[in-house]
């Protein structure tokens, strides 16, 4: 009976205040997606022509990188909860490396665009391209910093797998990283796949 009750009891992952922040971010991005969709409809020919200059291969590679990083963070959190601190630290480190790989890929992609003479102010599509991916990249940097501190925390003296504070803090950090993945899951098809 107790086991069944435990399974059914709702559990919020991380701090509730963090969820308010995440939901706020999701709403802001939804509005940006709608603005993009509206302008795409208004200037369909221009948007479609501009989209052909993007390489969907970069978008796809970045999708796989972020999905993998999210999975690594899930496994890291599971390890932390079972007090496998070294394993958790490794998972968080590999997730950070995925973030770094995403950054390198983004710099190469931006570099290619800028070298071919494309700028943010060229037209509405490129404004959205640089705005959506740029804001997202800021999230990646914040997320990588968060992963760094999560790794440091699981290896530190203050960490305890049985402490609600320790685990809740890690869950909040992990959820922020998943948000980075979540946003890219929608940015990728909007900019690269559909027109």
């Amino acid at each position: 009976m107790n086991t069944a009750s435990k399974k059914l009891a709702p559990h919020i992952s991380g701090e509730a205040s963090m969820w308010i922040l995440l939901l706020g971010d999701m709403v802001i991005y939804a509005l940006l997606f709608f603005m993009y969709g509206y302008d795409h409809r208004q200037e369909a020919a221009l948007f479609r022509e501009s989209q052909t200059t993007l390489n969907a291969g970069f978008g796809f590679a970045n999708t796989l990188i972020l999905l993998t990083s999210s999975w690594l963070v899930v496994m890291g959190l599971k390890s932390a909860k079972t007090n496998q601190r070294a394993s958790a630290a490794n998972f968080f480190k590999y997730a950070m490396l995925c973030g770094a790989a995403f950054g390198v890929s983004k710099f190469i992609e931006y570099g290619l665009k800028i070298n071919s003479g494309i700028e943010l102010t060229d037209n509405s599509f490129y404004m959205y391209y640089f705005l959506l991916t740029g804001f997202h990249f800021i999230h990646v940097i914040i997320g990588m910093t968060t992963l760094f501190f999560m790794r440091r925390h699981v290896l530190g003296e203050n960490f305890s797998a049985s402490s609600d504070n320790s685990i809740s803090g890690l869950e909040s950090g992990a959820n922020f990283w998943h948000l980075v993945d979540l946003l890219w899951i929608l940015i990728f098809p909007l900019l690269y796949l559909i027109g």
Binding site: S70, W71, V73, E171, A174, N175, I185
Partner: peptide, 11 residues
């Protein structure tokens, strides 16, 4: 991602 990685399914 929301339900399984961010545990919203149990929220």
């Amino acid at each position: 991602v929301l339900r399984n990685f961010m545990d919203v399914a149990e929220a």
